[in-house]
Amino acid sequence: MNPTVTHDMSVISLITGASVLVQLVMLVLLLASMFSWYYIFLKIFTFKRANRLADQFEKEFWSGADLNELFQRAVNARNSAGTLERIFEAGFREFAKLKKQPDMGAGMVMEGTRRAMRATYQREMERLEAYLSFLATVGSVSPYVGLFGTVWGIMNSFRGLANMAQATLGAVAPGIAEALIATAIGLFAAIPAVVAYNRFAGDINKLATRFDSFMEEFSNILQRQGQ
């Protein structure tokens, strides 16, 4: 048994043995991964609650409660209101205001109400979508950043090889392994970010259709009331 294996190949030594630029790349990737995981958890909580609040409000709304009462409650519980509640509040407020004006036709009232609801809806969606673009960026860019670190590390490894008399595999292999760690970290950051982005995009679509259909239904109700 020849003691040919002299290089310590533990992960820590691979990281500490890398060149400064590669280490910098690794640091950037680690930060990206950290933040993307932070936003992933944040978004999970957000969507969970958004769904819960929407369920709650829909139940109340369709159980035949008085619209004025619902509106009062929505105004009072402003800080804990869900998206549906806000849309409802904005629409109902606008509807009540426009209805008081004598020279408004039914069509114009409905149009103003819809606009108000649409504006709230847009604002809420924007809030729901916050940080998703960060996840998308991490998911698409970090493999390239990792690859850059790897290419740089391998370049260095080969440059070192040029100074050697004997080009053995043992002389290049540790350098390449060190460099490849950067790609590994890049992928480690990218994969969860991409998965989470897709998942959240799906969630947002679902929520958006839900809000949209609620807006349509609520408009119908208001229109019936207005006539």
Binding site: M34, F35, W37, Y38, Y39, I40, F41, L42, F45, T46, R49, A50, L53, R78, N79, S80, A81, G82, R86, R127, L128, A130
Partner: peptide, 19 residues
């Protein structure tokens, strides 16, 4: 209204979970 989406509690929890 941003409070509805992210509470400070959730921020801390998310950070801890990420770590």
């Amino acid at each position: 209204t941003a409070d509805t989406f992210i509470t400070p509690n959730e921020r801390a929890l998310s950070g801890a979970l990420a770590l």
